[in-house]
């Protein structure tokens, strides 16, 4: 059996929407379990007393990265069929910066705001309205900023390709970095906790 199942024609578009709902339920459940329906819990990452955002995010990244790596090695997953968002370095750097500021100002990101809305958080609902407003402004501004949005294209490209490092070595480096990061994050939490 070869995966991704959808790309290898195991099911069609209608079924893919049912899969979307099921994967979304798992996604939303994990976000709320982790406490990410709460803006205070999310914002705490940036005040260093609760680094759950970093821990959850990098545990998830390492889990999925190890999964695709091993499934690829044993030949069950065709990684070339997993969609990679093309890299446009300059707008993605600026976009990340703007989004990071928006995270601390608003308290959520789009996915976590959905978890906040579902659990009755009024600030999450207002935040979601803000997303619609920001999207509208972007749509109206799009003709003027199109040049920058499409600047510095690098295509669909991975870190192992750009730095010419074997995939497995880079996976090991990411895992090592994550484990050291978890250790460091917990030390910082304890240090900040003991000060306040």
């Amino acid at each position: 059996m070869m995966t991704p199942l959808y790309k290898y024609g195991f099911f069609g578009d209608e079924m893919s929407l049912i899969v979307a709902v099921l994967l979304g339920i798992g996604f939303g459940f994990c976000l709320e379990r982790a406490g990410f329906g709460s803006a205070r819990k999310l914002a705490a990452q940036f005040y260093l007393y609760d680094m759950s955002v970093f821990k959850v995010m990098f545990t998830a990244i390492v889990t999925a990265l190890l999964g695709v790596t091993y499934l690829g090695w044993i030949g069950w997953l065709d990684l070339s069929q997993v969609y990679l968002v093309p890299t446009y370095l300059a707008p993605q750097i600026v976009g990340g910066l703007v989004l990071g500021v928006g995270f601390v100002v608003g308290g959520y990101c789009p996915g976590t705001s959905a978890a906040a809305v579902a659990t009755g958080r009024i600030d999450g609902m207002v935040y979601a309205l803000g997303i619609f407003a920001g999207t509208f402004v972007y749509a109206e501004a799009y003709p003027a900023i199109k040049g920058f949005v499409n600047a510095t294209p690098m295509g669909q490209v991975t870190l192992p390709q750009v730095f010419d490092i074997p995939w497995g070595v880079l996976v090991f480096a990411v895992v090592l970095m994550a484990v050291l990061g978890f250790w460091g994050a917990t030390r910082v939490e304890r240090w900040i906790g003991s000060r306040s």
């Binding site: 601390v104 308290g107 803000g130 407003a133 402004v137 972007y138």
Partner: peptide
Amino acid sequence: AFLGGMLMA
């Protein structure tokens, strides 16, 4: 929250 949502978008 509203402003942050706009920036995020």
